[in-house]
Amino acid sequence: MALPSTTEIIEDLEFFDDWEDRYKYLIDLGDEMPKMDPKLHTRERLVKGCQSNVWIDVQVAGNKLCFAVDSDAIIVRGLLALVMAAFNNKSATDILAFDIQAYFQRLELEQHISPTRGNGLRAIVARIQNIATASHLV
């Protein structure tokens, strides 16, 4: 099934009033997000966090950047699904224009992209933004 858009995610998460439902939603998103081929779990694609590992692969399709991401932690996968909703299959221009900080604040999950969390999510966001900056599609 297709993953929800950022708008749908914002609406969905606003609907839940307790943390448990919100985290279950993240876990479900993590389950639904397509798995990365384990062969792609290489050192070059690894973004190491001290709590969990995250992998990222990027392909260029026309003027869009297509990402595949993965983590060994299910809640981190759910968080990655939120990031994918914002960045996947988007142009470099759209990626760089998107305010990820505001988006995570809106979702009340900003703690997960703060520097205090060693889960690799912040590093993935930075990696995606760097890829977008470096791509000649800007």
């Binding site: 943390w19 448990e20 985290y23 709590q51 969990s52 060994d72 932690a73 299910i74 809640i75 981190v76 889960n119």
Partner: peptide, 11 residues
């Protein structure tokens, strides 16, 4: 994963 355990305990 340990990270998942940590998130849920923190809440």
């Amino acid at each position: 994963h340990p990270a998942d355990i940590g998130f849920i305990l923190d809440r």
